[in-house]
Design a protein around this nucleic acid. Structure first.
Lengths: 191, 191
DNA sequence: ATATATATAGACCAATCGGTATAATTTTTA
DNA sequence: TAAAAATTATACCGATTGGTCTATATATAT
């Protein structure tokens, strides 16, 4: 029963955190190995393609983590409006509590790497698609026609990502909270 | 009459472009001096505080540039809804035409540096505030009460920034176009 | 013309970057 | 237990990073 965290897992977990906080280029492999406790020799054994491969798998871990948070938040209500508002409030609360030292998931890596690595660009694209699909599903189960649900999911995704970026830069959760308040009108269900 | 572009200006112009395309950490001072034609000696003469100072002034140049684009777009109509929609369409068109090789203004630097440099964080904050104020002004002149206009401006700013990020990552202007279509409902003026 | 700022030129610095090499070790299989 | 496979440990690599230094021009004054 090998239940302890493997070196590979430790590397991915640490890298995910650092890439989110510092971005791709500011995060060195030496820092990742040092903070994870795994040696550099292990890094290139488990990730023979180097930093890019490690970043890709880190993005995928972050994607799963965020997706689970979205699912958790959305199951709070059958009403898509209330559910999505609840999820955004969740983000805003956590953002406020943790002193916004965590960065914005995916976004930094997406902006830094999309033009230099198609692999990483696709990884980030896949992340956003997953988030989008979760919102779309919720809207469909709330009565929206599928095509319309997908369109609205893109808009909701944009609002959240943009508000997250603004809240991060301002150091203030207000943009996230204001966006949450407008969800009913985007979904055309007056409150 | 010294009308030729000074070394300082060349450095800022080149740095603005590179920071937007590649982000802060991926852009080296050697690359900036090389592409601008200005020598490294000049860099530390004009920017004694180094990369951070150059980045701050670059952000400010980008801010002015984008602000002018917003003003240009918004003056297209007295109706805030149509004006804002027109501006977003402008972005989407340019994005599509230029093969999205330009990056997202401000955002990358904001995400990369906000946690490590309060100066740069404030510079990016100032950028977003300027954009926000232009939208808010337009809404006020369109009949919105000031406080409400400011709230909606934050939301519109979020939608645009988020959609820009998604369009960039997808390599597709669709998120921007979908967000434009939802502007009437956010401003509660049915089309 | 001469003195004085202003600006340029580019060699140089320690530190760090991503990445490689190989030997030693641990774990698994036979 | 012996052989084989998986993993770890470092020392090391050239290249590049942001930043410094001093000598040399180029203007702008007096």
């Amino acid at each position: 029963m090998n239940e302890k965290v493997s070196s590979k897992e430790k590397l991915i977990i640490t890298a995910s955190k650092l890439f989110q906080q510092q971005g791709y280029h500011a995060t060195g492999l030496n820092q990742i190995t040092k903070e994870s406790g795994a040696p550099k020799g292990s890094l290139y054994y488990h990730f023979p393609d180097g930093k890019e491969q490690l970043a890709l798998e880190s993005i995928q871990l972050t994607t799963e983590f965020v997706a689970r948070q979205i699912e958790e938040g959305l199951k709070q209500s059958d009403n898509p409006v209330i559910a999505i508002q609840h999820f955004i409030s969740m983000i805003a609360d956590r953002f406020q509590k943790e002193g916004h030292q965590q960065g914005v998931p995916i976004a930094a890596v997406a902006l830094e790497t999309s033009l230099i690595s198609d692999e990483l660009r696709k990884g980030c694209q896949e992340a956003y698609r997953k988030f989008q699909n979760l919102f779309a599903q919720k809207l469909v189960s709330g009565g929206f026609v599928e095509e319309r649900a997908e369109q609205l999911a893109v808009v909701i995704n944009s609002m959240i990502e943009g508000a997250f970026l603004l809240s991060f830069t301002y150091g203030d959760s207000r943009p996230l909270r204001l966006v949450a308040e407008e969800i009913p009108h985007v979904l055309r269900m007056e409150d």
